[in-house]
């Protein structure tokens, strides 16, 4: 199932609704890479609240999205990782290094706004 991507001011919000196949993840990556340029987005939020598993492929893809969007001028925040999922991830050594994370959508938006303000402030 493809992931719907919404635009909210300068941000894109990808809200994952159900478990994703590897293909869906690749699709999400490609869509976001394209849409960041198309909408001139400054931030991307990927909401994984609905996921109860994040395997190594998913983690790697999320990290790839974060690095990629950065190259295209937008910061990515992963929001809504569940406590159990987080615990399983660190045990597998999947720690999403250098990727921003936040508790939920609201926190993610606040974090992006703060990062933007810092960047423009300088």
């Amino acid at each position: 199932m493809a992931v719907p991507i919404l635009k909210q001011r300068h941000h894109l919000i990808a809200s994952i609704q159900s478990a994703l196949s590897d293909q869906d993840l690749v699709g999400l990556r490609d869509d976001l890479a394209r849409l960041v340029g198309q909408h001139r987005a400054l931030g991307v939020i990927i909401d994984v609240t609905a996921l109860d598993v994040l395997d190594s492929f998913a983690t790697r893809t999320l990290r790839a999205i974060a690095y990629m969007t950065k190259l295209r001028g937008a910061e990515t925040v992963i929001v809504g990782i569940q406590p159990d999922v987080a615990q399983a991830m660190v045990q597998l050594g999947l720690t999403l290094e250098d990727v921003l994370t936040a508790l939920d959508l609201e926190e993610g938006l606040a974090l992006l706004d703060q990062r933007l303000a810092e960047r423009h402030g300088r």
């Binding site: 990782i81 999922v85 987080a86 994370t101 508790l103």
Partner: peptide, 12 residues
């Protein structure tokens, strides 16, 4: 260390 990383994944 794992606990700290897991907390970070939650955004804390």
């Amino acid at each position: 260390v794992q606990t700290v990383e897991a907390a970070r994944l939650l955004g804390a």
